[in-house]
C-alpha cells in the first residue's frame, strides 16, 4: 500500500535546461522574434502557399482586373465626343479631318485608356499644326485645341512650291503659285531659315512692292530681290534692309528702276554699281561721246 503520509515535496529548483530556456525567453531579441517574427512568418507561409496555386493567382488577377475595369468604365469616366477647335483663326476642314484621322480613338472610350501626351505629339506631328492642347472636358468630351501654322511665304525649291510659316517650317506643297498670289515668293537654298529677314525686306518694299517678284537667297548668305522686267537688286549680306530702303528711296526720287537698268549691285555699300541694259548702254555711250567728243 502507498504511504499515506505527505508526498515528498517537489523540488522547487528549476532544471538547468528549464532555467536556460527561461533565460532565453527573457532575451529581448528572442522575445521580439517570437512576438513579431513568428506571426509574420506564419502569415508569410499562408500567403505563399496560397499563391503557390496558379488557379489562385489567376483568380486574384481576374478579380483585380474586373474591379479596375468596372471603375474605369463608369459613365463618369467615358469619353464620347471629340471637339477640334482652333485657338485663333479657323480650321480648314481638311486639317480637321487630318486631326481626326491622326488620333487613334474610337468612341466611347474610358479616359483612363487615353494617353493625352502621345495624342498631343501625334497631333503636333501634322505639319499644319503648330501647337496642340488636349484635355478631357467634363461631360465626356475630348477637346483638341490647335494652334494652326499660318503660311507667310512660298519657297520655291526647284519645281516644287512649298508653303512656310513665320518660323521657317515647311507646311506643305502648293500646286500652283496662282492659288496663293497673296504670299511672297522666296527661293534659294537656306531661304526658309531667314524667313524673318525676307519678310522684313518685303515689308519695306513699299511702293516697289507690286514690282517685286520674289527674293532669291544667294550662297546662303545674302538676298537678291528679283523685280519684273528682269531687274535684280543684289543686297549685301550685312544690313540688307537698310540697303533696300535706300534703293526704294532712290527709286522714288530718281525713278531709277523705271529706266533700263538690269542689275543694281549694292554688295559694296560704299560703291553701288548699276548694270545697264543693251540699249541704255549704247545710248549712254552715245551721250558721253557727244558731251566729251571723244566717242569713248
Amino acid at each position: 500500500m502507498q504511504s499515506l503520509g505527505p508526498a515528498t515535496r517537489r523540488d522547487p529548483a528549476p532544471s538547468r535546461l528549464g532555467y536556460r530556456f527561461q533565460r532565453l525567453m527573457l532575451t529581448p531579441g528572442v522575445r521580439r522574434a517570437i512576438r513579431i517574427g513568428l506571426p509574420l512568418m506564419l502569415l508569410a507561409i499562408i500567403v505563399t502557399t496560397w499563391f503557390a496555386n496558379p488557379g489562385n493567382r489567376e483568380m486574384l488577377q481576374q478579380r483585380i482586373e474586373t474591379i479596375i475595369s468596372s471603375i474605369e468604365e463608369r459613365p463618369e469616366f467615358m469619353v464620347n465626343v471629340m471637339s477640334v477647335e482652333a485657338q485663333d483663326g479657323d480650321l480648314t476642314p481638311e486639317l480637321m479631318q487630318a486631326i481626326r484621322v491622326a488620333l487613334p480613338v474610337n468612341f466611347p472610350m474610358s479616359s483612363f485608356d487615353m494617353d493625352l501626351e502621345s495624342y498631343r505629339e501625334q497631333v503636333e506631328a501634322i505639319p499644319a499644326v503648330d501647337q496642340a492642347m488636349l484635355r478631357i472636358r467634363p461631360g465626356g468630351i475630348l477637346e483638341v485645341a490647335v494652334a494652326v501654322r499660318i503660311p507667310v511665304a512660298i519657297w520655291r525649291q526647284g519645281e516644287a512650291l512649298l508653303l512656310i510659316d513665320s518660323s521657317g517650317v515647311v507646311m506643305g506643297n502648293l500646286s500652283e503659285r496662282a492659288s496663293r498670289i497673296d504670299l511672297p515668293l522666296i527661293a534659294g537654298d537656306g531661304a526658309h531659315s531667314v524667313i524673318a529677314e525676307a519678310l522684313k525686306i518685303f515689308e519695306v518694299a513699299g511702293p516697289l512692292a507690286p514690282r517685286v517678284r520674289g527674293l532669291v537667297r544667294m550662297g546662303e548668305r545674302r538676298w537678291d530681290v528679283v523685280l519684273d522686267r528682269g531687274q535684280r537688286l543684289m543686297l549685301p549680306s550685312r544690313n540688307p534692309i537698310s540697303s533696300f530702303e535706300r534703293i526704294v528711296a532712290m527709286n522714288q526720287a530718281q525713278d531709277l528702276l523705271d529706266r533700263e537698268v538690269t542689275v543694281i549691285d549694292l554688295r559694296n555699300e560704299n560703291r553701288p554699281t548699276i548694270r545697264l541694259g543693251e540699249n541704255a548702254a549704247a545710248e549712254m555711250r552715245r551721250i558721253n561721246a557727244s558731251v566729251s567728243g571723244t566717242g569713248n
Binding site: 523540488d11 522547487p12 529548483a13 528549476p14 538547468r16 532555467y19 527561461q22 533565460r23 527573457l26
Partner: peptide
C-alpha cells in the same frame, strides 16, 4: 547551485 538558480529564476520572472 539549484537554490541559487531558483532565486535567480524567480527574480528574473
Amino acid at each position: 547551485e539549484s537554490a541559487i538558480r531558483t532565486a535567480l529564476r524567480n527574480a528574473q520572472k
